[in-house]
Design a protein around this nucleic acid. Structure first.
Lengths: 252, 252
DNA sequence: GTACCCCTTTGATCTGTGTCAATGCAACTT
DNA sequence: AAGTTGCATTGACACAGATCAAAGGGGTAC
């Protein structure tokens, strides 16, 4: 009855898919950043091949034993936490060049779920081997620490968003963040396709899907963006930014 | 006019204050966890002495160059982020054995402020040296990664709290979290002193101080806790926990 | 010891977002 | 091509928490 898009079959590692970091056009965004050619080749050697996922498939689930972190090669992911009592919180959306799975290091078990929001491809980076290599390559070690620290800082930004912003401010911040990340990857800053549903956006932003939808509509009415389902075009990025810094200051 | 408690004078490093990790009764909670005696002594050697802070003093400020991380030896801290437009979000409260400052690794500059909420003492851990040592001691390296990962997981928990919980649930979660952390340090799980103001609790929990105060009062009326200013006594921990897992499930 | 100031509590009202409900739209299946 | 299904939009209403305001209490500094 279900299409294979939703089956969540555990995907096999596809060894033929291996593409060396040194050849990868994401290397300036990803883990190998800053490495010399020769060090990059050493990193190539430990990366355990790629893995392809269909839309809807889990890369890992909360409770899975932690063995690797993952670098997104193509596609789009979400991570979410869910508690016994049924709460569900999207903790992030990840795109090409971003690292997934660091939540698992602390307990040796993944703390959240990672799901592909479109057909995607990741590199598998066995963590024990990565630690071993990074103790030999200071640049790699330091960059790994930077990546983890960046995740912490990003999370603090989300806490700020959830703790202090109103619905429209949250959505504006979300759109601007996506725009900026797409830009860094060479895509249009103004026009993109949302891979996630209104409900997933809402979960990430601490809002209900209806509120997200209404905020989109209001932005459109005011000429800030144009929305057609999942297709977004930012029409007035300056006014969108201005939403985040209210003129009256709101200084406590 | 101001008392010296509020002056935020940059405190000097106090070399005489140095206490070795190997002698520290927090070593099982802190960075040296799991190290052999000899490795712990090597860690001792790089720890750059202690630093004492009066209540209200900053350990570091957003924008300060990043050089060290810090381990809380005694006392209590808060970290907060503030943006140009005047938003202010408390991102965490740290107590003995917890590590501060990892936000600075990614950009070489601290991303938030750390303030002592009572007279406190920290160990200074120069980060470059820590990286160097950790590449020689795999256990130390791995534990550092665990500490950073734990921070990421903790942040996800706060995002869950901010994104999905109602005021009383947030406060219950907050109290239970404090209780659990005090317990881990050998203090009473049921009775403790809040070091932060209602406003700081509110900022952390994404609530206004009046809402925090009202929630405290309601908890007291219902016999869950007793509140006397900053002195808290948990009277019915089971019912407090039950607040977090509503009987109807609330499963979406 | 005393005075001041900040923190906290509590009340009254307002408002943004959640909730409930119905309709619309688009893509995918058959 | 029609039917099914999931996602998005929109409206009406309710309510949790914010805001505004005032009074009380405790700790801290002198």
């Amino acid at each position: 009855m279900h299409s294979n898009v939703k089956q969540n079959v555990v995907p096999l590692i596809t060894p033929g898919l291996k593409v060396a970091c040194s050849q990868c056009n994401l290397r300036e965004l990803c883990l190998p950043f800053g490495l010399s050619e020769s060090d990059m080749i050493r990193l190539d050697c430990l990366i355990g091949g790629g893995r392809k996922l269909k839309r809807g498939q889990h890369l890992y689930r909360a409770g899975d034993p932690f063995e690797s972190i993952f670098a997104v090669k193509t596609g789009f992911f979400k991570t979410d936490v869910l508690t016994e009592d049924g709460r569900d919180q999207v903790t992030g959306f990840q795109m090409a060049g971003e690292i997934l799975g660091m939540d698992g290091i602390s307990t040796e078990v993944h703390a959240c779920n990672a799901v592909a929001l479109e057909d995607s491809e990741v590199c598998l980076i066995p963590f024990t081997e990565l630690e071993a290599l990074s103790s030999e390559i200071p640049t790699l070690q330091h960059h790994l620490h930077k990546v983890m620290s960046r995740e912490i800082v990003r999370d603090h930004g989300v806490m700020m968003l959830l703790g202090t912003m109103r619905a429209e401010e949250r959505l504006a911040a979300f759109l601007l963040n996506l725009s900026q990340r797409f830009t860094a990857r060479g895509y249009s800053p103004a026009e993109f396709h949302l891979r996630m549903t209104r409900e997933e956006i809402g979960s990430y932003l601490g809002l209900k899907l209806e509120t997200v939808s209404r905020a989109f509509s209001r932005f459109q009415d005011e000429g800030l963006i144009s929305v057609q389902q999942k297709h977004i075009r930012i029409l007035d990025i300056a006014r969108l930014k201005a939403l985040l810094a209210p003129p009256d200051g709101r200084i406590s």
